[in-house]
């Protein structure tokens, strides 16, 4: 696992703060209390479950692949062994991991016979609508800001990669590949903004949202709509129309988040 690079599965649970995370109270004392409050273990367990579950759904971890040992994995993720064990238990219940004891034993990735959509819906149930809404807000903030800056700073070379991603998005063989290219478009948009920070944030965000997007990208009509929205963003960036580039990118992302929320409410 490399320290950098979008191709790698990024471990580390700290990116999203769960219910027990940095919820600031009123006033500085409240903020300090919130900062140093113990992170609720449940939130960490959920974060680990999501991280590993997403990686399995996206095919980043292959069927039958052995996960690192408990203490090593806990160390990589920055959680206690107890938290990791609870997470592995939840993953076993979801049928995504099997554990074998004894010599040659350990935890293995296991893709159950259930169709991917059903498994993904189980994963979506792990998100509250409020968290999904917040995820959408964060994504819109990143992609909107990136589109605006890209409109100021872009050149034909940057646009070529974005256009290529739109083509690949339409030609993708399955929804997992399509959702990966969807994410790559937004990473490329952040890179076109010439911002390493926005790009890093976008890469991290895509590791969370990528698996969920599979659920809404199966719809052929919506696929077309996303491609059209991406084309409109590219055109606005090309024209140097910073405000409309921002608005178009925000709308594109907000629509995807809204579809996830609607789907979540139907479960």
């Amino acid at each position: 696992m490399s320290g950098g690079g979008a191709g790698g599965l990024r471990m580390g649970v700290g990116q999203r703060s769960g219910p027990g995370g940095l919820r600031a109270g009123v006033g500085e004392a409240g903020v300090r209390r919130a900062v140093f409050a113990p992170v609720e273990r449940r939130a960490r367990v959920d974060a680990v479950v999501r991280r590993i579950g997403d990686a399995i759904e996206l095919g980043l971890l292959a069927d039958g692949e052995q996960l690192p040992g408990e203490s090593e994995l806990a160390g990589q993720l920055g959680v206690s062994t107890m938290t990791l064990r609870e997470a592995l238990m939840a993953l076993r219940q979801q049928g995504l991991v099997t554990t074998r004891r004894g010599r040659g034993g350990g935890s293995f990735v296991s893709l159950p016979g259930r169709p991917g959509q059903a498994r993904l819906k189980t994963r979506l149930r792990g998100w509250s609508t409020e968290e999904l809404r917040d995820l959408g807000d964060h994504w819109a903030a990143l992609s909107g800001a990136a589109a605006r800056l890209a409109a100021d700073r872009t050149e034909p070379e940057d646009l070529r990669q974005l256009s290529r991603s739109i083509d690949e998005f339409m030609g993708a063989a399955d929804t997992a590949a399509r959702s990966r290219v969807y994410g790559r478009f937004h990473v490329e948009l952040a890179a076109a903004a010439q911002s390493a920070r926005l790009t890093r944030e976008q890469v991290a965000l895509q590791t969370e949202v990528g698996a969920l997007l599979c659920l809404v990208l199966g719809d052929a009509e919506y696929r077309e709509e996303v491609a059209d929205r991406h084309r409109a963003v590219v055109l606005a960036v090309q024209d140097g129309a910073r405000d409309s580039a921002r608005t178009l990118a925000e709308r594109c992302v907000e629509e995807s988040a809204a579809r996830l929320v609607a789907l979540r409410l139907s479960l």
Binding site: M1, S2, G3, G4, G5, A6, G7, G8, L9, L58, G59, L60, A62, A177, R180, V181, G183, R184
Partner: peptide, 15 residues
């Protein structure tokens, strides 16, 4: 340190 990338096009959009 070496850079280790996932270059499997079946798993990475950045292959």
């Amino acid at each position: 340190r070496p850079l280790l990338l996932d270059l499997d096009p079946g798993r990475s959009a950045y292959a």
